[in-house]
Each structure stands twice: as C-alpha cells, then as structure tokens.
Amino acid sequence: MATPDTDVRGHVTVTDVDLYTRMLLIRRAEERLIVACADGSLPGGVHLYIGEEAVAVGACAVMTDRDYVTSTHRGHGHFLAKGGDIDAMFAEIWGKATGICKGMGGSMHVADVSKGILGANGIVGAGFAIATGAAWGAKLAGEGRVATCFFGDGAANQGSFSESMNVSAAWELPTIFVCENNGVSEFTVTSTVTGGTLVDRARAFMPATVVDGNDVHAVRDAVGAAVERARAGGGPSYVEATTFRIRGHLEAEQHMLGGGTYRSEDDVTAWQADDKDPLPRLAARLLADGTCERAALDRIDAEVRARVEAAVAYAEASPPADPDLAPQIMFGPTA
C-alpha cells in the first residue's frame, strides 16, 4: 500500500491511484468478510461499507495520523482509510489475540489510537460527542489537528447531533461532521422517520454542503476545504455525502427479516451500476485521463486481493484471544 506523504500544511497528498487502491482494499476486504461470515469463521456479525468507500477514502485523504476520527458500527472503511493495518483488523474480526483490540472489541469496535482512530462504535451517534471532545482537545493543544466525525443519516436523529454541532459552533472547534447519507437507518428508510433535511439542521450552526458521496474527488475536495478552515481556526463544518449501502444493515440479516423487506432491490441494483459505484467511476476516470491502463488496474486488483488473503491467513494463524485479559484491562492503574 502506498503511504501518503504530508505536505507543508500538514495535509496528506494522495494520488488518484492511491485513492483507487485504498477504496479497492476496503471493497475486497469486505467481500472476503462476506465469505468468512457465511462460512462461520467469525464469532460475531459484520456491518459492511461496500458502496460507500469513496466517503472514508476521500475524507481521510486530507488528514494525517495526528488528526482524530470517530467511526460508526460500519467502521472497517474508516479504519483502513485512516491508515489502520488490515492484518490487525482482520485478526480483531476473527477474535484473535493479535487483533488491534486484542479480540476484546471485534468488528464494530476497531480502533487504533496511535493513528487517531478513536474507534468504530456500536452505539449509533456516539461519535458526535467524542469527536467534539477530541476537537476541543485539538484546539486547546493548538497544533492544528482536526477531529472528523463519520456518521450516518440514522444517527442524525440522535439529540447529540445538534448538541455536538452546537458546542462545536459555540466554541469554534475544529470538528468536521461527515454525514454518510445512505438513506437507511438500520432497517428503516430514513425519510419515513425524519423531518426536514439534515443539511438544514447543520446550516443552523455551521457551513454545510452536500456532495456526491460516490465521487471520491468531490468528497476529498469538500472535506479538504472543511479541514483547511478548521486548521486555520475557522471552526466546524458539515459535509453530507450522498451514497448507498449495497449490503444489508448487517450480514446474514435475512435471518432477522423473516422474509420482509425494507427497501427496493431495484435501487440496490441501480446503485451497483458502473456509473454509480464509486470504484468503476474512479477507474473510468483513471483510464480516460491516461493515468492508468486497464492492465495496471488489473495488477492493482491482484495485489489488493493477495494482500487481503494474506490478512486472512494472518488472522487464521493467530492465537485466540486471551480469556483472562478482560479483568486485567477493565480498570486502569490508580495513582
């Protein structure tokens, strides 16, 4: 995987090929998780990000390891986009001692504090306040860091959404609210439970914009402008990325649905078309502008697939989680 270079402003410069490779890594990793979930390899469920890769990758392309992100229950994409290690993530999802959280958190809780990844979170909307607190810390430290909160349209109906936007605006904190609007709140179409529009809620507090969330450049540029403003002391921003969740709320959800449906299969198919899916869209651009030839894209795909299989092998070969660890790390040392 390419390592992003940092320019003089502290921003990450990432080439289009890097963006494509990162998005593809998330896609292939999660396609492999579909298989692992179905064959019973995993101790728990997984919530997949397939179809939304351009949001995490575009947003994280303008951040460094020193910036903070909070993630969602659908957090594999944010973890990998922010530079988390796929071996450690897969080992975590497989419940192994070598997992990034030693097998104590699992798929919904991948975190790497050393890279500013304050964790995927099983509580919908929990990231708003955590990101706001981290942004306050970033402002107090005065080192130009930002805190980005990834969240979905479902989370935006939690009260802490407006509470955290209020604090961030009132205290001019470097908080970036990135809404992944995929139209569904778990198993409920969001429009059936939502008054007004989300961007209008945000506009009451801060600069707010809506972008095509399946266009990685559009996301990168909008979040980049927000990050630049935040680093310069200009306070928080809201970026809403319109996207689509190709998979269900979680894998194996058909067992929970009892034959029922909550959205149209035609919509799912439509969003998988080459002109909607963020990966073919970027691939077409790379081919059209001469950045890559088809053979180069195929080679990237082969490398990414090999990397994912290596991570599976690492996870499978790793020792199981330590069953005695939980009582040892529940509490920190006292003074």
Partner: peptide, 12 residues
C-alpha cells in the same frame, strides 16, 4: 454530549 466530550477530550 458532555459525558461523550469528556471521553473525546481524554482521548486527545
């Protein structure tokens, strides 16, 4: 939000 901010501020 205050309790969550405490977590974020401590994380920072």
């Amino acid at each position: 939000t205050l309790t969550g901010m405490a977590v974020g501020l401590a994380s920072a």
